[in-house]
């Protein structure tokens, strides 16, 4: 395991009866990056995260977080000592007050940073004496972030962190994640909010039907990927477009849509040689996501 990777899985799988929630998943997450983990609802994002945290055992494959084996109970404990996790529902003990919960969580982490706790309490304006169950979802998210960040984790894992948040809270959350990364913590977060991922992620992992379908730097994706629309004049079936750089192809009638990651000139030249009218447009994450996860018509 190289020190540059905080998460590494090989052939990770999880089956529920006949349903393969995660299938042969091999991925890597680099240190000091914000990595967005994209996928539709039910694509396998949460299952993957829960396997990394030791909540669910994989049916096959191996996984390592910060170099520790996720299936070994003792090593899983070490993982949880060194990372922080914020779940989708931000489920915290509602019967405790904010102060109680902070005191409780602090007791598990010898390296708890009181100055971070004090700063975030000030910034988030969390009411110390209020019961957690009386907090709004936005405030609960802030409290969950405080509990996660004050222990200064090497890796912060978040499952759908903006779920249920209003736009202001979402914005504050995204800013916090960027600050966290700047302070040296690696961030791995799942989402199906493409705009959020596009705003802050350095790298994008895309999962569909439990399988990894994309692993790329966001900058590379936006710079290199292109949509190529082709309209063929000639009657008859559209010729095969099995060329280097073609990621996805959709064909309807005499029209073809190609998502290309490289070799744009080569693909365009090939199409023109087939008498096609060609239009090349830049892509955004949404286009790529829809192209990749949408079933071909």
């Amino acid at each position: 395991m190289t020190h540059e990777l905080v998460i590494e899985t090989h052939g990770l799988s999880r089956r529920y009866g006949t349903v393969e929630a995660v299938c042969d998943l091999s991925l890597t997450v680099e240190r000091h990056c914000i990595t967005g983990f994209l996928g539709r609802n039910g694509a396998g994002k949460s299952t993957t995260i829960k396997m990394l945290l030791g909540m669910i055992r994989p049916t096959a494959g191996v996984g390592r977080v910060l170099g520790y084996d996720i299936t070994d109970p003792a090593q899983s404990l070490e993982i949880r000592r060194r990372i922080a996790y914020v779940g989708e529902d931000k489920g915290l003990y509602g019967y405790m007050t904010v102060a109680d919960l902070i005191r409780f969580t602090r007791s598990f982490y010898p390296d708890w940073q009181s100055q971070i706790e004090a700063r975030l309490l000030r910034e988030y304006q969390l009411p110390l004496g209020r019961k957690v169950k009386a907090l709004s979802k936005g405030m609960r998210t802030k409290l969950a972030l405080l509990l996660a960040l004050a222990r200064r984790p090497e890796l912060l894992i978040l499952d759908e962190p903006s779920e249920g948040l209003d736009p202001v809270s979402t914005e504050e959350l995204l800013q916090t994640l960027q600050e966290v990364r700047a302070a040296g913590t690696s961030v791995f977060f799942s989402s199906h909010q493409l705009s959020e991922v596009e705003r802050i992620a350095d790298r994008v992992l895309m999962i569909d039907h439990g399988q990894l379908v994309m692993n790329t730097l966001l900058g590379d994706l936006l710079n290199n990927y292109r949509n190529i629309n082709m309209e063929f004049a000639a009657q008859g079936p559209v010729p095969a477009l099995d060329l280097a750089g073609v990621e996805r192809t959709r064909i309807r009638g005499r029209q073809a849509w190609v998502l290309a990651s490289s070799n744009i000139e080569g693909i365009v030249a090939h199409a023109r040689s087939l008498d096609a009218i060609v239009q090349v447009t830049p892509v955004n994450l949404r286009d790529v996501f829809l192209d990749i996860v949408r079933e071909a018509p």
Binding site: M55, L77, R80, G87, D89, G91, Y93, G94, F108, A144
Partner: peptide
């Protein structure tokens, strides 16, 4: 059922 299991199981305790 209460939604707190994720928080509990992410604590560094067995």
């Amino acid at each position: 059922a209460q939604g707190t299991v994720g928080f509990t199981l992410s604590l560094p305790v067995s």
